[in-house]
Amino acid sequence: MDAQMKKGLLDACVLHILASGDTYGYKLTREITGMMDVSESSLYPVLRRLETQGFLETYSTEHQGRLRRYYRITASGLGRLNEYRKELAELRRIIDFVTGGDANG
């Protein structure tokens, strides 16, 4: 898949997962790598960027004597997710058109 496209989709995936509940880095990575072919280590820069863009925020809780950082989606993150969903719906129509045409042709 094209790297640029993958990047956009990765953002959307992260926001989507966080929309259904706060989670921490490792768990988030497992969920995403289970669905997309991305390197397990490539998620950190994405999370950091989304955080500085204000789409998500972090907080730490104690877990077995150490701190575990959780990620939580913000209101503007939810807004961005909705935009992604609209864009992806449009993309789906294009995909349907292209792949459907192929099947019918």
Binding site: Y24, G25, T29, S41, R66, L67, R68
Partner: peptide, 23 residues
């Protein structure tokens, strides 16, 4: 982040060598 990542992975039973090979 990565330190935490390893702690979480090992805690959930991942093998260190295998984990590193995935990164």
């Amino acid at each position: 982040y990565y330190r935490e990542y390893f702690s979480d992975a090992l805690e959930e039973g991942a093998d260190a060598g295998e984990l590193l090979s995935r990164l």
